[in-house]
Amino acid sequence: MNFDKEFDASGLSCPLPILKTKKALADMASGQVLKMIATDCGSVKDMQAFADQTGNPLLSQSEEGGKYIFFMKKK
């Protein structure tokens, strides 16, 4: 999937992946896509909850070798 910005939250625990996602989205334009990588398995449900509550759609999430990869579109 194409993306406009990427950041790696590997090794960080709750709530840092969410807080850093929020920060990363802050300076993106509407419609742009953020790729986020995390190792915290709690981030799977947290990212979905973040998407539901903020209205930024979570386009996809997948797991690869212990890493969780999220693509989120800025609303």
Binding site: C14, P15, L19, T21, K22, F50, Q53, T54
Partner: peptide
């Protein structure tokens, strides 16, 4: 601090 920062991130 965890709940406050997270809630703020959620708007």
């Amino acid at each position: 601090f965890i709940l406050a920062s997270t809630a703020a991130a959620l708007g």
